[in-house]
Design a binder for these strands. Structure first.
Length: 479
RNA sequence: GGCCUCGUCGUCUAGCGGUUAGGACGUCUGGUUCUCAUCCAGAAAAUCGCGGGUUCGAUUCCCGCCGAGGUCACCA
C-alpha cells in the first residue's frame, strides 16, 4: 500500500513558520515512497474564512517546492478538495450514523449548553455533553445540529511520534458532527475526507491528541479503517513557552521570501527543527531530506524557533548556490533585491557586483544595503574618514597627501584589472610606507563611504578606472 | 479541576546501562601579510528538571514530585 498524506489548512490567513511543518513532513513522507500528498482546504467555518487565503497557501507551498499531487488547481480523482463543496458527502455519512443509532439531532438551545458548561467549570469538572444528553430528540432537519452518540470505552492506539497511547472513557463525548448551518465540524469532516481520499497517514499538531479517542470512536462507528496517526509537536516562540503563533509576530513564510530568504534554506531549516536523521549533517537539499526523513526521528518535545540559525543557513545556501550552480544561478534569484540606484545598470555589471559581494550576504535583501556605492557616488563624509580607527592618527594633510599619491600612481596604470590593481596597491604601500590597514582603509572609504566593502582590488576593478579616480579626486578636493 | 504530552550547553540536537556527555547556531579568542564577512583553528558553555529506587554502575530502566505545554467550542 503506498502512502497518502495530506495538508489540510483552513483558509483563515497566511501560513506562518509555526504551522508550515505540517505541510513539509507529509510531503517528505509521501515523496520518499512514491506516494501522494493531497492538499485539502478546510473551509467549513464561514465566519473565519479569509478572502485570498487559499491562494496564499498555494503560493507558499509552491515557493517551498511542496507540490501536491491532488487538490486545488491540479484536481484529482477525489475532487472537490474544498470541504465547503463536499456537504452532500458529509450528510450521507451522517445519515448512516443516524440509521445506526449513533447520531442524534440536538435541539437544545445554545444558552442551555452554555449553562451546563458553566456548571461544570464552577464544579471544576470536565464538561462532557453526554452527561446532559437530551431525553427526547427530534428528527434531524436544517437548523438543528447533529451530535455523535458516544458509547464511551477505553482506547489504545499508536502514535507514530508519541508512541503507544491510552485513553479512558472519560475523554469521549457527544461531539457535534454537523453544525446548525449544515456544515460539518472539523472533527467529523476530516474523518470522512481522509477515508474517502484514502489518506494513510494523518499528520497534525499535538493539540489534537486529546480528541483522538473521539476520532477513534467515529472510525469504529463508521466502520472505517484507522489511518496511521502522527502528532507533530509545536514550534515554540523565541520567548516564553507558548507555541509560535501570529500573536508572537510569527511572520508568514512568504514574508521571508520577500526578505531574501531562499526556499532551500527555509525548507532546510524548518525540516530540521524538531527532526534530525541522527547524523551531523546540517545542510540538506530537498532530495536529501526526502531520502533521510523518517517519522520515528521526529522530536517529541517542542522546538523553539530561532531566526538566527535560519539566517545562517540562508547564508550557507547563498554561497552553495553560487559555488555549485554558478554566479548566474544566484543572480537569477536576486531580482527585486537590488538598491534603487541599480535600476540604471545592466545585468552584466550587477552580476559582477554580486560575484564579489555574495559571500557577505545573509539574505538577498542585504544587497540593498551593501551595494549602493557600486551604482551611485556615495556622499562624502569626512567625519567618517577622520574618525576611522585606522585613520584617526593621521593628520588631514597626511590623508590628502596619501590620496594624491594614490591618484597619481593609479592613473598611470595601463591595465585596469584586479591583478594589476593589486600589484599597484602593493607598490603604493612601499612607496608611502604605510600599513595596508591605513592606506587601504582610506581608499576604501573614499570609494564607498560604507562600513565595509569587498577586497579593494576587486572593488576598484568593478567600479572601473573612471569612477575610481573620480571618487578619489572628489574626496581629495573636499579635504 | 479532570485527562494527556513534554523536560540534555542560551538555542536546535546526538545519546538509547559504563562516553573526557558529541555536533550545529549564537558568544569569545586567534589566523587567513586591508575593513566587514566568508573560511580555518581554538575557548567558554549541560551537577542530563528534582528526589527516591533497581543495578557493581545510571542522562539512559522504574516510582514519586516539580515545572512547562495541550485539551475539556455549533474553531480548526
Amino acid at each position: 500500500m503506498s502512502i497518502v498524506t495530506r495538508f489540510a489548512p483552513s483558509p483563515t490567513g497566511y501560513i506562518h513558520i509555526g504551522n508550515v511543518r505540517s505541510a513539509i513532513y507529509p510531503y517528505l513522507l509521501a515523496k520518499q515512497s512514491d506516494g501522494k500528498m493531497i492538499l485539502r482546504i478546510e473551509d467549513t467555518d464561514r465566519a473565519r474564512y479569509v478572502e485570498g487565503a487559499t491562494e496564499l497557501i498555494e503560493n507558499t507551498l509552491e515557493w517551498l517546492g511542496l507540490n501536491w499531487d491532488e487538490g486545488p488547481i491540479v484536481g484529482g480523482p477525489h475532487a472537490p478538495y474544498f470541504q465547503s463543496e463536499r456537504k452532500d458527502i458529509y450528510h450521507q455519512y451522517a445519515r448512516k450514523l443516524i440509521a445506526a443509532g449513533r447520531a442524534y439531532a440536538d435541539p437544545t438551545p445554545a444558552e442551555k449548553i452554555d449553562e451546563y458548561r458553566k456548571q461544570c467549570n464552577e464544579a471544576k469538572v470536565p464538561f462532557l455533553y453526554r452527561n446532559f444528553r437530551p431525553e427526547h430528540t427530534v428528527e434531524w432537519q436544517p437548523g438543528i445540529p447533529l451530535r455523535f452518540k458516544s458509547e464511551p470505552k477505553e482506547y489504545d492506539w499508536h502514535d507514530e511520534v508519541m508512541g503507544d497511547m491510552h485513553a479512558g472513557p472519560e475523554t469521549e463525548d457527544d461531539i457535534i458532527l454537523i453544525k446548525k448551518d449544515g456544515y460539518p465540524t472539523y472533527n467529523f469532516a476530516h474523518i470522512v475526507d481522509d477515508a474517502e481520499m484514502g489518506v494513510t497517514h494523518v499528520m497534525r499538531g499535538v493539540e489534537y491528541l486529546s480528541s483522538t479517542p473521539n476520532y477513534l470512536a467515529l472510525y469504529d462507528a463508521l466502520n472505517l479503517a484507522r489511518p496511521k496517526l502522527v502528532s507533530l509537536p509545536h514550534i515554540l516562540a523565541p520567548q516564553g513557552n507558548k507555541k509560535l503563533g501570529k500573536r508572537d509576530g510569527a511572520k508568514s513564510v512568504t514574508e521571508y521570501r520577500d526578505d531574501g530568504v531562499l526556499a532551500e534554506a527555509m525548507l532546510n531549516y524548518l525540516a530540521c527543527l524538531g527532526w534530525n536523521d541522527g547524523t551531523e549533517q546540517e545542510i540538506y537539499t530537498k532530495d536529501e531530506l526526502i531520502k533521510a526523513f523518517s517519522l520515528d526521528r521526529i522530536q517529541t518535545s517542542g522546538a523553539r524557533y530561532d531566526e538566527t540559525k535560519l539566517l545562517w543557513l540562508n547564508g550557507q545556501w547563498i554561497r552553495r548556490i553560487f559555488d555549485e550552480q554558478g554566479a548566474e544561478a544566484l543572480y537569477a534569484r536576486t531580482t527585486g533585491f537590488w538598491p534603487e540606484a541599480a535600476a540604471n545598470h545592466d545585468d552584466a555589471y550587477k552580476l559582477q557586483v554580486l560575484s564579489i559581494i555574495y559571500d557577505r550576504l545573509k539574505t538577498l535583501s542585504d544587497l540593498r544595503t551593501m551595494t549602493n556605492y557600486f551604482f551611485i557616488d556615495p556622499e562624502i563624509d569626512l567625519e567618517m574618514l577622520t574618525s576611522n580607527k585606522f585613520l584617526k592618527n593621521l593628520s588631514e594633510a597626511e590623508i590628502e597627501e596619501l590620496l594624491k599619491t594614490s591618484i597619481t600612481t593609479l592613473s598611470a596604470l595601463d591595465t585596469w584589472d584586479a591583478d594589476h590593481l593589486q600589484a599597484t596597491l602593493n607598490n603604493l604601500l612601499i612607496e608611502t610606507n604605510k600599513k595596508p590597514a591605513e592606506l587601504f582603509s582610506l581608499i576604501r572609504l573614499a570609494l564607498s563611504y560604507a562600513p565595509f566593502s569587498p577586497a579593494l582590488d576587486l572593488t576598484m576593478s568593478v567600479l572601473g578606472r573612471e569612477t575610481t579616480l573620480a571618487r578619489l579626486n572628489a574626496t581629495a578636493r573636499a579635504m
